[in-house]
Amino acid sequence: MSIKITVTVNGVKHTDKVEPRLLLVHYLRDVLRLTGTHVGCDTSGCGACTILVNGKATKSCTMLAVQADKAKVTTIEGIASNGELHPLQEGFNQCHGLQCGFCTPGIIMTACDLLKNNKKPSEEEIRVALEGNFCRCTGYENIVKSIQYAADKMSAPKARKTKKEATV
């Protein structure tokens, strides 16, 4: 038995027939071939599979694809815009917030949710927000700094291009 679902992923509408037992993470990885979302534990312990479902950080290994019917999903592949990295993507590079990079997409998506609700999180608030994500490489310190970098950048007043600068 297959069920038809329509999911908007990174702004693109997908309609597929899926088995009811198909996990959302496998729908993303195996059906849509968006392999940036990873599976680290299959039991919502590690957070490597974290994505945004209707804007909320969600562990896609613990949600069925059919539950995402009509939902808006954002994955790590969808946060850069027009070739420009998201401030979190930039921050993780600037602050050495990743090593092997396997947990990174999930952590960035968790941080997306955090920064939406808390523009200027403290170190402690960031550490607590990451309680659902494991990183075995970094000891977390540079992840905290990466998120702080992004928070600073996102809250800074946007540099407006004057007409003159824009034409240079």
Partner: peptide, 12 residues
Amino acid sequence: EDKRFTMGHGKF
């Protein structure tokens, strides 16, 4: 190497 990992384009 960071760009491919932060963009979800690592090749595991």
